[in-house]
Structures are given as C-alpha cells and as structure tokens.
Amino acid sequence: MMLKIDNLNVHYGAIHALQGISFELEKGEIVALIGANGAGKSTTLNTISGILRPREGSVLFQGQPIHEMPPQEIVRKGIVHVPEGRKIFPRMTVWENLEMGAYTQSDRATINRDIESAFERFSRLKERRNQVSGTLSGGEQQMLAIARGLMAHPTLLLLDEPSMGLSPILVEQIFDIIQDINEQGTSILLVEQNAQMALAIADRAYVLETGKIVMQGSGDELLENPSVIEAYLGGH
C-alpha cells in the first residue's frame, strides 16, 4: 500500500472540514477524489502534503506515518503537491520555476536533464522558457505547475483541480498528460470537480461530501452509478 489515510479529522477553528475520512491508494494507481465545492478535497491534499495538521487520524506513506512531518520533509519522501489555482512563482521565468521545482535535487546535470525532458513533454513551455511566468496563459501556467511538480521526482503526485478554468481542448490535453505521467510510473491522487473526465481515467475513485466519504468504487462503476450521475455528471 502506497498511501493509507485512516480516520482523518481536520478542523479550521470551529469548522470540522474533514470528518473521519479513510481511503487508500495502491502503487501505480490513479485515484480520483471528486466532490462539490467545499467538500474538503483541497483540505485532504493539504493535509497529506503537510501544510495542514490533522487533529485526529493518520496518513501512512509506504507504511510510515507522515502526518506530523513538515512539508519539506514530505516532499523529500516523494509526495509532491500541485496546489489548486495554477500556483506558480509569477515573477520568475519558466526556467526558474522549473529550477525551483528541483529544490530538493542537488545534482546540476540531472536538473538540467529533467528540465529538458519537461520541455519535451510540454513543448509550449520550451518556446517560453525565458518568459516571466505570470504572463503565461492559464493553460500554460497549469502545465508549468505540473511540470514543476515533476521536477522533484515524485512517487506520488497530488493534483488539485488541474482542469479548473481551462478550455475543453486544454482539459483534454491535461488529462492526457496526467495519464502519461501515470504510465511512466508515478502514482496519482487526482482532485477534480470535472467528475466525468476524472472518473474516465481513474482506476478507483472516492466521492467526498461535506467532509465525509459517501461513495467509492472503480472509475467505471461510479460513472454508471445513478446517484453519481445525478449529482456530479449533470443527471443524464
């Protein structure tokens, strides 16, 4: 078991944002976490990556508890979080952003090689390598955020709504890239509001509602589940 979340409880002051959620992710899987706005998806990822502390419950990564570690150590364990909202360093160039992503790496040659392979995967970034990244388009910023995450050689990638606010064509591209990253051996925990696309590429998925997991199953099962269709797939 790569990731095992057990009875996780997270509070923001009086708000009980995660109310005892438990789920798992096997090595090599894409697991999707879907749910409405405010369900607690981002909170879950922030807790796994160490930005938030749970009040109760545990996060085991490769058998080791990590819920009390600071984020910088969790990154070094191999979990990389690409936060919600195309978060890049807006005043750094594309190249510098990628370099920052490799902050935990120390070998210069490897870093340069990784940047080149990022440019292979994201060819639009290559042309813009010296552009200040705050001036990139939304899609390019999202690509950069993912590329930067990959620079740290994650074994588990946490993606928070990578398709948010992108045009259908770009969404398609992003999901292709996610699948490709997964095929190259990186496990992925994918948070999405775009349930259709997420379930289509996910091995398994969990549905989160107001801080609780209410449903789970394989991606295909949930795509056909009437109540999922009703609530998240536009009710056809």
């Binding site: 930005i51 984020p71 936060p83 360093f89 750094m92 935990t104």
Partner: peptide, 22 residues
C-alpha cells in the same frame, strides 16, 4: 539556492513549501 528560496517564499509561501523549501 538559498537566495532563490527567499524569492520563492516571497512570491508564494504555500507553493514554496510544496516544493520542499522550509
């Protein structure tokens, strides 16, 4: 590296921490 980490923290602390900066 240290200097770049400062600039990163300045621009976005959350992302900076997510990239492994203390």
């Amino acid at each position: 590296r240290t200097g770049k980490a400062w600039v990163a923290v300045n621009q976005d602390e959350t992302v900076a921490r997510a990239t492994g900066i203390n």
